[in-house]
Nucleic acid binder design. Structure first.
Ligand SMILES: [Zn+2]
Length: 455
DNA sequence: CGTGTTTGACCCGCGC
DNA sequence: GCGCGGGTCAAACACG
């Protein structure tokens, strides 16, 4: 067992609102006093009375300053965040040179302004810096909205757009978007009400943090059994969500692979690396597969295969490789699949499988093992007849039939499982900006025996 | 054909 | 009651 302590910052930005481009950032302003509405309409009612006029302009000025302050604060925060990320990413990229697109990220967050919670009221106001010529009044966030109206309002040349949350049919949240009177570069977004569901981007975060928080679970379900089933469901949701998020999988795979390759020398003969991480009370397990050819058959299967099945297939694939002479295998790209796994103790956990990129597995002739002729003939015959469908589900029966013969093929060196353990922490910088930090703890080399591969 | 947007009609509270 | 302005409905429409 080797002990080490490397900080692996994935900079996943899991729930970044990025997508395209002009996603602006947010900030909410806190004013508990009822006061004016977002369009300053009330201010425009300047009365003839002198004092009222003064009051109006002062109040308007005050509001403007408040907006500026909020933006400055958030810009400071996001800049600080960027610096932090850059330093961490620099550390990672030193290990494995990788192109980063900081400029985009930085630029994007400079667009954004601040975000604060309105105490009470359930009304949230957000200021977004956008192109003044953009008349669309579309502000992206982590929800889906259906536009149900647009009105021109008094004293504001820009119309006001009305949206209703369409992520959940019963969600009462409404959203109003209108360009600011004071600054045509700013769009004011007003949210009203509270969502009765999770946002698209928060789905994963919920599964990992909030819902697994014991107190939260106990609040919802008193029975431990109910809590267990709840966790199981959430684990499955999480697995499905992550496996479909190519942004997540690519970055995670790249980060893990570069880190694990650097931190520990993986012997060319080890065909499986298993990395484990604990995420609060949720255990993540990373199965790194260095074998080519298996990747597509695993991650493109629907539903995702169980880990046990994957391991079984890896055994078969390894034998397949051993049957080839002086095989050099170069995998390229990286892929991650996610699934769930149940242990003997009944706990279900999330499993993330990683196909490692750019690995060269050299198998010299010294690895070739004498094998029984009939077995190898049978296997080779099968493989040549069904090269593509070797791992397909419809060949399951035949596959098992072959597999039963596999133990008769002698191994000189049993395959090795390398188990990595990480501590995973997820940081929420601001609404919509999260990243994951993984602390490498140690790794363990195990023989792949029945004890190590949980049935 | 289902889905989301446009846009004028409509509704409703408020001040006069 | 009436007009005004903000908010919503829904029929028509655009889009894939
Ligand atoms: Zn909602």
């Amino acid at each position: 067992m080797v002990a080490a302590s490397h900080a692996l910052d994935l900079n996943l930005n899991l729930f970044h609102i990025s997508t395209d481009d002009d996603t602006p950032v947010v900030e909410v302003q806190s004013d508990s006093d009822n006061e004016d509405d977002y369009d300053n309409g009330s201010f425009e009612k300047e009365a003839d009375v002198h004092t009222v006029g003064n009051l109006s302009s002062v109040s308007k000025e005050n509001k403007k300053l408040k907006e500026i302050l909020a933006m400055v604060r958030e810009n400071y925060n996001s800049l600080q965040t960027q610096v932090k990320k850059i330093m961490q990413d620099k550390e990672v990229s030193e290990l494995s040179p990788k192109k980063r697109k900081f400029d985009e990220t930085v630029q994007q967050s400079l667009w954004k302004t601040a975000n604060e919670e309105l105490p009470k009221s359930g009304i949230q106001r957000v200021y977004v810096q956008t192109d003044p010529s953009d008349k669309s009044l579309i502000v992206k966030d982590e929800y889906q909205w259906r536009k149900y109206g647009q009105k021109v309002t008094r004293d504001n040349p820009s119309p006001r757009a009305y949206y209703k949350c369409s992520l959940a049919p019963s969600c009462p949240v409404k959203k109003k978007v209108q360009r600011s009177l004071d600054d045509v570069g700013i769009v004011v977004v007003t949210y009203e009400g509270e969502h009765n569901h999770r946002s698209t981007k928060e789905e994963a975060a919920y599964a990992l943090t909030n819902k697994y928080d014991i107190s939260t679970s106990e609040r919802m379900f008193n029975s431990p059994k109910a809590r267990t089933t709840l966790n199981e469901v959430l684990v499955e949701q999480m697995a499905e969500y992550l496996s479909k998020d190519s942004n997540f999988t690519e970055k995670l795979a790249a980060a893990i692979c570069s880190k694990t390759l650097q931190a520990c020398s993986i012997s060319a003969d080890s065909s499986i690396c298993v990395t484990m991480a604990t995420f609060k009370d949720v255990s993540l397990q990373f199965v790194s597969v260095q074998l080519d050819g298996l990747r597509g058959s695993i991650i493109h299967r629907d539903p995702l295969p169980s880990v046990d099945l994957v391991v079984s297939e890896l055994c078969a694939e390894e034998i397949h490789l051993k049957s080839l002479d002086d095989q050099k295998i170069v995998t390229q790209g990286s892929s991650v699949f996610a699934t769930s796994r149940r242990f003997l103790n009944g706990i279900k956990e999330l499993v993330i499988g990683i196909v490692m990129p750019s690995l060269i597995i050299e198998r010299g002739s010294e690895n070739k093992e004498p094998s029984e002729e009939d077995d190898m003939d049978y296997l080779d015959d099968y493989l040549s007849r069904n090269p593509e469908s070797y791992f397909m589900d419809n060949k399951e029966g035949e596959f098992k039939k072959i597999k039963s013969k596999l133990p008769r093929i002698p191994y000189k060196e049993p395959p090795v499982i390398i188990e990595y353990k990480f501590e995973v922490a997820r940081y929420v910088i601001s609404k919509g900006e999260h990243y994951v930090n993984m602390m490498y703890k140690h790794h363990n080399e195990l023989l792949r025996t029945k004890e190590n591969v949980v049935e």
